[in-house]
Design a protein around this nucleic acid. Sequence first.
DNA 1: TCGGGAATGTCTTATATAAGTTATATGATA
DNA 2: TATCATATAACTTATATAAGACATTCCCGA
Lengths: 270, 270
Amino acid sequence: MSYISYMIDDNASSSPLSRKAAPPTDFGFRPLYRQVKEEFVRRMVDGRWATGTALPSEQGLAAELGVSQGTVRKALDELAAENVLVRRQGRGTYVAEHDEARILFQFFRLVPDDGIARFPDSEVLSQGVHAARKDERDALVLPSGAKVARIGRVRSLGRSPVILETLSLPDRLFPGLTQSPVPNSLYAHYAAHYGITIAHTTERLKAVTLAGEDAARLDRPDGHPALRVERLATALDGRAVEWRVSLCLTDSAHYLVNDAPKGPHKAAGT
Amino acid sequence: MSYISYMIDDNASSSPLSRKAAPPTDFGFRPLYRQVKEEFVRRMVDGRWATGTALPSEQGLAAELGVSQGTVRKALDELAAENVLVRRQGRGTYVAEHDEARILFQFFRLVPDDGIARFPDSEVLSQGVHAARKDERDALVLPSGAKVARIGRVRSLGRSPVILETLSLPDRLFPGLTQSPVPNSLYAHYAAHYGITIAHTTERLKAVTLAGEDAARLDRPDGHPALRVERLATALDGRAVEWRVSLCLTDSAHYLVNDAPKGPHKAAGT
DNA sequence: TCGGGAATGTCTTATATAAGTTATATGATA
DNA sequence: TATCATATAACTTATATAAGACATTCCCGA
């Protein structure tokens, strides 16, 4: 008797969720908790839940959306597993912030051979808006004729330069980005000033040898090996928003890839 | 009234699980579902659940362990998220197999620039048992004097060599491994013949330039850039079991890193 | 070959208890 | 009075259970 709302669900409720989105073909069926999750993502994308915001309690959200607490919980748990939300027992659930610690943990993989990851300093070499090159249009899925904001910079750990990189972003999404000095921590800047949250990155690595100006900028001789990292960053809604090509010195650092589970996983020791 | 078993739990049950392992200090407390998970890992480690095995149903496991189906489900879900189990609605839950598709998906990250990942062929150059070098002992946590099985091989995609690598394994865990020809797909071999399941890898990457014999083996001139990948593979129970150093050519391939969530995650598109 | 179950995993709801955090009240002390 | 420590209340999320509806798959029989 108490399962009526689950069975019929969209007859008299003001809820934006419906169990079957496509009645004719059953294609596109999504579980309720996933629809709830998508609603939460919408709220973050459109700014209702900005980074750092404390969410209402599970009970409150459940009442508001007309679903049970368990369903809300499953949606929140998945978003927490994706590092989009942060949950703390007794305190509440928060929209994750792009602070240095999180970026270091989630996105920055170049770590010193002896020691732990640190956030590198940046020196901007150039910044401006240009017509997008073909590689940029391909990566960012832009039409021909589109413009990109382009930033060149050198990043250092300690005193010596380690990374030489060029960033490209759709000018339409980041108007005015390069008209004032850009901060060291870009992802926090995107979130704070453009409401765009970087949620996910894909990186392609190649080994190359340095030459000419690149070698000079990194203070290494021609023919010195370096790691070339192409990173495509996508926002919460899945749009590609940043294309980054980095030349990384790996003389006293390495690129770390760990396929370990993120959360409180760990197999039982014997 | 039906929650008594949850509250006292270990008074009259034959269950191997207990809610509080350490009564004096509450240190070492683990939730029930995690104890269930550890029990499942034990069964895989000691061979009761070999790779490919179909697990009993959730209801059956719940009845056997004296917990609810939801608790079993939470444990199974975490193991599935770690790629240790594979769940298919309507079919059942299976211990993941180390077939080529899974290795390609989970462990092999060197993909051709144009096209999709393929499993490379191998040509073994050398295999034998030796006294462990210091770097091997450090990586595999072996005492001085320990012996390792060592394998050198060249791997090719299509006709041209792409990877030159050396593998080291504790001889104690893999007796006789190098006394007969080793197969191309090693992780399946470990599981089938030694009951050791590779669950997790950590890789450290550096850019280097080739020289001497390495260059010759890979058919490239001295000074040619290559990706040096150090991989430490650990088993289900957390032990380090394989140490691998690979030199990868990235002329027409790249190393792919994707931080996307594994499972059925994907943010809502607008 | 087709269709109808049976088995199994998946989703949803509901409820109860545990445990961590924060705010508020209380009372002793300086 | 002001301050500090402690108790307590009121939140929150985390864990656990149970039961029913639903989707998917597979097998068996017509």
